[in-house]
Design a protein around this nucleic acid. Structure first.
Lengths: 340, 340
DNA sequence: ACAAATTCTGCAAACGCTTGCATCGCAGAC
DNA sequence: GTCTGCGATGCAAGCGTTTGCAGAATTTGT
């Protein structure tokens, strides 16, 4: 048996220095009221002097649970995810919880690793805000008994809440708005993980265009999520020879990239081409021209997720539901009547 | 003594199911080669069937250290911090380390909490990329013996590396560039935590302007870090009646906000006002007009930090140094000759 | 066929903390 | 002066792993 004398600072060291038992130190550090004031201050001083910091792993282990909220997002760079993350973080901190984030970069292998990490950490709750998701992983989370929330993917279970945005509705609104402005040639720019051939958004776009004006043309392009991806998709679009009078983008972030490329090619927005986004991130308001987009209430989504996962600290979580949120069209200056 | 029968899945359950001891299971799960192939697969199957996930807290506790890289940033929203974070994350993942991020929002109380968290987690290494920092906290980290790197603050110690950017040089270059374009009235827009009256950047700006053209006017404004903060500072600037022909911003993110407000007020960039930023974030290239800025190699900084904190997995870390990086002026379209 | 060398596997301590229960000390009651 | 009651503390088990060492199983050598 190892007799590895611990060099690290631990409860024992503090206890010894203060002349009490480890239990007492533990009680002081956890603010249990049963400790005599004099003892209490003696312990606190000892801890201070020794520069003691409790080992959170040991703590979690002993308590059988951790005070950590796990968050998994696809792309931290995209302000949409970031905003939800920030809301969750602030809600968590308000309840004295810490937060661990993991980024998947839209890679499902990384998503797997992240889920493993969160389960391994025995997080108190888990928020999964990703575009990619396999049934298998949902099951894994379901079996883990960790209260969780999934955004835009999967179906509710006993410990899982689902939150989804009705993109269909948003796309329809946008298309009919553009249609009313006379647009008959439209393109949709997405990122790869939202645009498998099976993707609902893709279908919805095509359907909506077809419904609004059966004779209209519609095409679809894609690039990686991000400013560069948007730009790249726009370049492909232009090179393809297809000249849409309006471009719908899967999110604002990509839309900004798209606009950059259009400007570069001498096209004016919205005079030559109208552009729309999705999400209504801060940047949509700050770019030039300000972007017409669909507002998705990210703060509200964050709060809902937090509530359903760790609702006010009670043991009875409010999971197992499905919540649907409607986007709302926000018209700014990046859209106008179609060029004749 | 509690006889709380464990309901949670643990090594024991797997061991029992596979008909071996916990040690063997542990060895299988850690890929120790000494396990017989047949036993190995039996164990793996049992683990699979039971949906077993090792408890990382117990693991860290037993091992005496965790495979976690801690990162603390001021403002995850600012792409500058985000880029460093992403580099660190990818380096960490490449070595099989996980990452825990904490956001301080420029609040020193939150910074304290974050440092406590990281120490409590016994992270393998710590990167602190914040603008605010108290000597006291640096000492705390120093005493913790955790290999750490601080960006732009503090001084090297045995377990601490310092990385700083020579902002002074960048500001000088920018001012003299603008000066050469005929600018004689310039403003500096910062965020509060970079702009105490003691702040070096503030001083450098004033000095540089004074040196380049003794008769020139210079003023300083500030808002919170972010698009809104930049906009707000610009508004104050305009309302103050001071009409600079050039505005230097402490970072690109704020510069985008500043430009938005200027446009709103009908000022043209760079015809009426030139604007510069710092960092050279992606967005600087995508905004309109593309932003003249100072490139700060964030990827390089990320790699350096990672190397010095967890360099290639050896026990001998390369800390205790100070590394200085020079920014480089990148001229784009947001600057031009001064309006006469 | 038996000893020796070599794999493999199990035992049990240790990691640093929490917490139910036992204990100790002392004030007030009788 | 002994007893009761109660607040404050200590004891020690247990949380789920890892790992040094020893013992069991298997192979090798003769």
């Amino acid at each position: 048996m190892r007799k590895r004398r611990s060099l690290a600072m631990n409860l024992d060291a503090v206890a010894q220095k203060a002349g009490v038992s480890t239990s007492t130190v533990s009680r002081v550090l956890n603010n249990l009221e049963i400790v005599k004031t004099s003892t209490r201050s003696r312990v606190l001083r000892a801890a201070e002097e020794l520069n003691y910091h409790p080992n959170l792993h040991a703590r979690s282990l002993a308590r059988g649970k951790s005070r950590i909220l796990g968050i998994i997002v696809s792309n931290m760079e995209n302000p949409f995810f970031l905003d939800i993350y920030r809301t969750l973080e602030s809600d968590a901190h308000a309840q004295g919880l810490e937060v661990v984030v993991a980024n998947t970069d839209y890679r499902s292998e990384q998503l797997l690793a992240s889920v493993q990490l969160m389960i391994g950490l025995r997080v108190a709750g888990l928020a999964v805000i990703v575009s990619e998701m396999e049934e298998h992983l949902i099951q894994t989370v379901g079996n883990s008994r960790i209260p969780a929330a999934f955004y835009d993917v999967g179906t509710p279970q006993k410990n899982i809440t689902n939150i989804r945005v009705d993109y269909r509705k948003g796309i329809k609104k946008t298309v009919s708005y553009l249609s009313a402005l006379g647009h008959r040639r439209m393109a949709f720019v997405g990122h790869h993980s939202t645009l498998g051939p099976i993707s609902e958004r893709r279908k919805t776009f095509l359907e909506s265009v077809h419904r609004c004006s059966p004779s209209a043309e519609a095409k679809i392009f894609a690039g990686p999520d991000g400013l560069d991806g948007g730009r790249q998709a726009a370049r492909e679009l232009l090179e393809s020879g297809f000249r849409p009078t309006a471009i719908l983008c899967v999110n604002d972030f990509m839309a900004v990239g798209v606009m950059r490329e259009l400007r570069e090619e001498g096209l004016q927005i919205p005079k030559d081409v109208s552009v729309t986004g999705f999400d209504n991130i801060k940047l949509a308001e700050f770019c030039s021209p300000p972007l017409t987009t669909n507002h998705i209430p990210r703060e509200q989504i964050g709060h809902i997720i937090f509530q359903s996962v760790l609702g006010n600290g009670r043991e009875q979580y409010d999971t197992g539901r499905e919540i649907v949120i409607d986007p709302e069209l926000v018209v700014r200056d990046s859209t106008g009547v179609a060029k004749s």
